[in-house]
């Protein structure tokens, strides 16, 4: 589904990704861990097409297409979803209105019929119920005045609604209490149907107790320096990132 080869990218002239390789097959969940500044968020944003990051080398293939040539919205239509580390606030834009606009933009691009408000509300209510979210989140302007936890839950709601092929979670767990963490995990786990894939970018192992990854990778200085199964995450939790850094300093 996703094939990243020797990906290099920089921001403000500074190289962040230095030849990253990763392959994600349909139905797999990959966890990407690493110390601060290792390039985790950059990688997530490059996949989604943020223009602040300049790709200077390498290739990214998604479903056989050259992802790097696509506009951000085209990537969304193709099925890529990024749960933002810092979701932005858009004052005056109703959350429900935005969700419907997003879903219909994607449906339209895929040649599906757009949902009218009645049909949409039905779908939305199901997702809200599934994720055990509070209704009032829908009535407020998009992320405006939301707490950190509410913003992250709202990201998961969007993910559940848009049903992406590849969901990328960029430190969605940071700043969440245990209840919110479970909601996030539930959202991701309901997406796991054997065909959809997930990349979980995280700093801590905690989230991986609830979203059990098929593979764990350690990102360090813009490269994946170690890969393993779910037990690698536990090992990192125990030993910290120090031993990785030491082995690569040598």
């Amino acid at each position: 589904m996703l094939k990243v080869s020797h990906l290099q990218a920089r921001v403000d002239g500074k190289m962040i990704l230095n030849g990253l390789d990763l392959e994600v097959k349909a139905g797999e969940v990959h966890a990407i861990m690493g110390p601060n500044g290792s390039g985790k968020s950059t990688f997530a944003n490059v996949l989604a097409g943020h223009e602040a990051f300049e790709v200077t080398g390498g290739t990214v293939e998604f479903d056989g297409k050259n992802l790097l040539e696509m506009e951000p919205e085209e990537r969304a239509w193709a099925g890529i979803f990024l749960a933002f580390q810092y979701p932005v606030e858009i004052p005056g834009v109703g959350n429900t209105y935005f969700l419907r606009m997003a879903l219909n933009s994607i449906r339209k691009a895929r040649g599906q019929e757009e949902l009218d408000s009645v049909a949409f509300m039905k779908v939305l209510r199901e997702k809200v119920k599934l994720l055990k979210l509070r209704d009032d989140l829908l009535k407020r302007p998009l992320n405006e005045g939301f707490s950190g936890g509410e913003k992250k839950r709202n990201e998961i709601l969007q993910m559940a609604l848009l049903e992406p092929k590849l969901a990328i979670l960029d430190e969605t767990d940071s700043g969440l209490d245990i209840d919110a963490l479970k909601i996030v995990a539930d959202g991701v786990n309901t997406l796991r149907d054997g065909t959809r894939s997930v990349i979980v970018v995280t700093h801590y192992q905690r989230l991986l107790d609830y979203i059990v990854p098929d593979y764990t990778h350690v990102l360090y200085k813009g490269k994946i320096v170690k890969s393993g199964g779910k037990e690698l995450a536990l090992e990192l939790e125990e030993k910290g990132y120090g031993w990785i850094q030491e082995s690569h300093a040598a």
């Binding site: 943020h50 919205e73 858009i90 935005f98 606009m101 933009s105 691009a109 302007p141």
Partner: peptide, 26 residues
Amino acid sequence: DQLFYCRQRGLSEEDAVSLIVNGFCK
């Protein structure tokens, strides 16, 4: 960042600008 957020959710750049401006004028 606002524009990127909207586009990541599938809105075209023009729709995104229009949405943000309309919100501002609400």
